[in-house]
Design a protein around this nucleic acid. Structure first.
Lengths: 214, 214
DNA sequence: TGAGGATACCTCGATGTCGAGGTACTACGT
DNA sequence: ACGTAGTACCTCGACATCGAGGTATCCTCA
């Protein structure tokens, strides 16, 4: 940490700021519109109250990452249209290219990063980032200790803890497969990977979208 | 929020405190041992520096959730062995039985809750909590907006965003299957569910099912 | 006309976060 | 004898979080 700020800005602020940088890179927005996008993306993990968003925007403006152009008389109050500066774009690319450890290990932060990884542009750089996640997923990990000894899934008596590990394993496998496939595609000449949904479990035509039941 | 504290304690503190309550319910610990367990469980999402842990313990002690017994001359510094009070146990059960919205929607918090759900004891109450997660997973959700319109996976051009949705879908399916299976087992008389993965929606044996690509 | 709701931004203050740094003792290697 | 690492707890201070509450405009529906 400690990047464009003199001091530390806190781990959480980083996920928020990354998403702000990313969305503004997509297109200039005013605070309210930005907030709606942020809520859709990370609201289920971290709600974005205005009293968090606006101070964040101010400090990012102060840091030179974005500019606020007051657009008079448009709607209700004077809107501040937010636009990323060159410095802001550079900061975004820097964060995407050299993620924090937590950006890679925390699924939520990782997905936030992924949502904007296209802004990195060079396929090789994108692949390098994906590899970091892959490395993390391949590390043995354990959630529970018996004294000092890590416990493996098979040793757990508790059905809920077993469930945690079962689901984590399934997730890990799914993600690993996607990562490998995508890294390969990226390194095979930067072709767009996953252009048409690869034949898999997801039946094409099943538009039910994210997280379906059944 | 706003439970045993007069005022609000913040969303993050809640995950930390739940884990503290849960681990101390497992067995009394001193701060250092507690910290190691916390790090194993949630460290990849939220590191637990001492300067966060010890103040948390103090405020929980002040709230009557735990007591600290000074154990003299043991190791280096005088250890404070932490034990949950009756009030602490009640608070734990309360948080498990009536989770916050975010406890259900944020995977990290949900897994933390799951890790201690056994302390709820009544199978019916456990099943009720699992159902909440199931309900959430069955809700249609979207991460990206085009203006105001939610975008579906198929509409996304960006391979990384597609990846996010692909992985989320796979995860959702795996978790949904586990949840349904476990709820059924719990409601069928409180037998231990998942003892040896019974056949559910997931093809038994091959857990690979979940993998989208390849 | 008037209420309600969405848009759009703001301040204030209580609180949690967490790095930096301190204390102190044990144990091991060299 | 000395350095390093681990155990175990602590304070301080800068900062981010976020609910409560405020302001103002616009639109819709009754």
């Amino acid at each position: 940490m400690s990047r464009y700020y003199v001091h530390d800005v806190g781990e959480n602020a980083f996920m928020l700021e990354l998403a702000i940088l990313g969305f503004l890179r997509d297109s200039p927005l005013h605070g309210y519109g930005l907030r709606k996008r942020l809520t859709a993306l990370i609201g289920h993990v971290r709600p974005v109250p205005e009293s968090t968003l606006y101070p964040a925007l101010k400090r990012m403006e102060k840091a030179g990452l974005l500019v606020r152009a007051t657009e008079p008389g448009a709607a209700a109050a004077p809107r501040h249209v937010l636009t990323l500066t060159g410095e802001g774009e550079r900061e975004l690319r820097r964060r995407l290219a050299t993620p924090e450890r937590l950006d890679v290990t925390d699924e939520n932060r990782w997905f936030t990063l992924l949502a904007f990884l296209r802004h990195l542009e060079e396929p090789a750089a994108q692949a390098a980032v994906l590899r970091q996640r892959l490395t993390f997923l391949e590390e043995p990990s354990s959630f529970f200790l018996d004294g000092d000894r890590p416990l493996r899934a098979e040793e757990l008596d508790d059905p809920f803890r077993r469930g945690v590990l079962t689901v984590a394993r399934a997730t890990g496998r799914a993600e690993t497969a996607w990562l490998r496939e995508t890294v390969a595609a990226l390194e095979a000449g930067g072709a767009r990977p996953g252009r048409d949904a690869p034949p898999g479990d997801a039946p094409p035509g099943d538009t039910r979208d994210v997280i379906p039941g059944t």
